[in-house]
């Protein structure tokens, strides 16, 4: 099967049992995407598929034929960190660093969702206008990404700073 990973075309032969996560980690030498539960319960395996955040542990790799997958390894631009990655460092938005790639990919997908007007459970108005990323909005929308070190405050600060134009 063919797919695009971090902008590069990839051709692989996979057992249909292989998850997108294990394809990345075990076959394509991209271990930046993390396995925290393999049950869809922690968010550590979050990647972007055609710009949308998904859990790579619950997706079979074969389902992603022809799709474009972005992992944490593909976020840097011109060899320097994505501004959200830098903001995570600046705000100490992690401790052990294991949930971090998932948090970062999730936040990028999340910001795009809010920008296009997707409401969340805490959005008062369902009018479909871009949703300002208040602290509460960020927390609700990021709740699928667990951080056992408890770096949540720093993560929210990093996201809020990076997507400040969405905060207003």
């Amino acid at each position: 099967m063919d797919l695009v990973i971090n902008g590069k075309p990839v051709s692989v032969d996979v057992d249909p049992r292989v998850s997108l996560l294990d394809l990345l980690r075990e076959r394509l030498d991209l271990p930046g995407t993390k396995k925290g539960c393999n049950q869809g319960a922690c968010g550590a395996c979050t990647v972007l598929v055609d710009g949308e955040r998904i859990l790579s542990c619950l997706g079979l790799a074969v389902q992603y034929e022809g799709r474009s997958v972005t992992t944490v390894e593909g976020l840097a631009e011109d060899g320097s960190l994505h501004r959200l990655q830098q903001a995570f460092i600046d705000h100490d938005g992690f401790q052990c660093g294991y949930c971090t790639p998932g948090q970062i990919c999730s936040a990028i997908g999340m910001a795009a969702e809010a920008r296009r007007g997707l409401p969340s459970f805490v959005t008062a108005d369902l009018d479909g206008d871009p949703v300002p990323l208040s602290g509460e909005e960020v927390r609700e929308r990021m709740s699928g990404n667990l951080c056992r070190c408890g770096a949540y405050n720093g993560i929210v600060a990093a996201i809020t700073e990076t997507f400040a134009e969405d905060v207003r």
Binding site: T46, R53, L55, F121, L126, G144
Partner: peptide, 25 residues
């Protein structure tokens, strides 16, 4: 838009479930 305006309980119920990543899948 039709769900948000005509059936808001359905929008809200979906958004109450799982996580953003899972709802995308």
């Amino acid at each position: 838009p039709a769900v948000r305006s005509r059936f808001p309980l359905l929008s809200r119920a979906i958004l109450a479930g799982a996580s953003g990543q899972i709802r995308n899948m």
